[in-house]
Write a protein that binds this DNA or RNA. Structure first.
Length: 200
DNA sequence: CTCTTGATCTTCT
DNA sequence: GAAGATCAAGAGC
């Protein structure tokens, strides 16, 4: 009898260095689609993100630094984690340059690594719903306020560039009431792991 | 399938 | 006091 086949796991691309994030959020955000995000070895392929620029009324940094958003005002390549609706954690990647206060919200992953761990943390079996939202994925990969301000190029974080071409789609952002018309949500075309489908 | 509501932390008015 | 970069559960269709 042949041994049971193991789940196929795509090869990881080269590690993303801090310089990767030292560019406009509008350049970094689409480049993150197809990259792999792991925290302590658990995570998956980034399939949905949103860009927030300091000149954008919907950004947490728009009105200046607070104790919550201070990491956004620091150098690029660090994690900004905040509490959402008093319940959930959401994780952003700080971009551009120190003081720019621009970041990218990670909104959905296609689970590839540590799926059993994610199912346990989420008390959920359906792999399509494990990481299909910013608050869901932080619970699944174990991100909380302790990760706020940590560098993205060292453990527990591990980020890897995509290994092949991807088709990126853009649309309006989700759940905001200011600057609602700006098309700064980016996703992997046709992915079944999005928080919401992109309009056709 | 859609719609409504509760959970309850941080910031702003 | 109200709103917010959310989610899950329950009611109704």
């Amino acid at each position: 009898m042949a041994p049971a086949s193991k789940p196929v796991r795509p090869a990881l691309g080269k590690p993303l260095r801090r310089a990767f994030f030292a560019r406009s959020v509008h350049d970094v955000a689409p480049d993150l689609i197809g990259a792999t995000l792991l925290v302590n070895g658990v995570g998956g392929i980034i399939v949905e993100v949103e860009a927030y620029h300091h000149t954008d009324p919907a950004a947490h940094s728009f009105r200046g630094p607070t104790s919550r958003n201070r990491v956004m005002f620091g150098p690029p390549g660090f994690a900004y984690v905040y509490r959402s609706y008093g319940i959930h954690w959401c994780v952003n990647f700080v971009c551009e340059e120190e003081g720019s206060a621009s970041a990218i919200l990670i909104r959905a992953l296609e689970p590839t690594h540590g799926i059993a761990t994610m199912r346990r943390r989420r008390h959920l079996n359906d792999v399509h719903a494990l990481c299909s939202g910013p608050g869901k994925l932080t619970e699944a990969i174990g991100v909380a306020v302790a990760h706020n301000g940590l560098p993205l190029d060292r453990e527990p974080f591990s980020l890897h560039a995509r290994t092949g071409p991807v088709e990126v789609v853009a649309g309006v952002r989700i759940g905001i009431t200011k600057a609602v018309e700006l098309p700064w949500r980016y996703g992997l075309k046709g992915s079944k792991f999005l928080s919401k489908p992109f309009p056709v």
